[in-house]
């Protein structure tokens, strides 16, 4: 099978690769580009561990073909910290013990980031809805919900 070129912006950097046609974005990011922050949990769209942000929208990279992302702007959790300073969501997850084994965490953070980008002061229900496509087998969810609410509050304090 011939290789096909793909080109997109990943966490602010231009990326160009030749991949096998039909490769999922998850596979391309992890195995070709070396960004292992999106996780492959189920490859069926049910766990949310592979969540990334494509052109401002939350998507599942396990069900997205890499070729369909030509020209797109992609954000993954590995691109959130700036010069070694954690993003408020990452900080809040650590402080609230919202990450245990950590497998779901990058996907949770992507879902939470999209929520806070559009709804800076979410209600608890907003957070539950935003995370409803992401499964966590460790925390029982409550610390994750609290972490997102804490990050929202710290964002609005910083903005004030």
């Amino acid at each position: 099978m011939a290789k096909v070129p793909v080109q997109f912006t990943l966490n602010g950097a231009e990326k160009a690769e030749f991949i096998d046609s039909g490769t999922t974005l998850l596979h391309a990011l992890r195995d070709k580009i070396g960004d292992t922050s999106p996780k492959g949990g189920c490859h069926q769209g049910t766990c949310g561990a592979c969540s990334v942000i494509i052109d401002g929208e939350l998507r599942l990279s396990c069900l997205t073909l890499a070729e369909a992302c030509n020209g797109a702007t992609i954000i993954t959790t590995s691109g959130l910290s700036e010069r070694g300073v954690l993003h408020p969501l990452q900080r809040a997850f650590l402080d609230a013990f919202a990450t245990q084994c950590g497998f779901c965490t990058p996907g949770m953070i992507m879902a939470a980031k999209v929520l806070l980008d559009h709804t800076p002061n979410p209600s608890r229900e907003d957070v539950v809805e935003a995370l409803s496509g992401n499964i966590c087998r460790c925390t029982g969810y409550e610390p994750i919900i609290q972490a997102v609410l804490t990050a929202a509050r710290s964002n609005s304090q910083n903005a004030a």
């Binding site: 949310g48 998507r59 599942l60 879902a111 999209v114 409803s132 496509g133």
Partner: peptide, 9 residues
């Protein structure tokens, strides 16, 4: 239909 990511697709 599904969760937020599914609905975007």
């Amino acid at each position: 239909v599904g969760g937020p990511a599914i609905r975007n697709m």
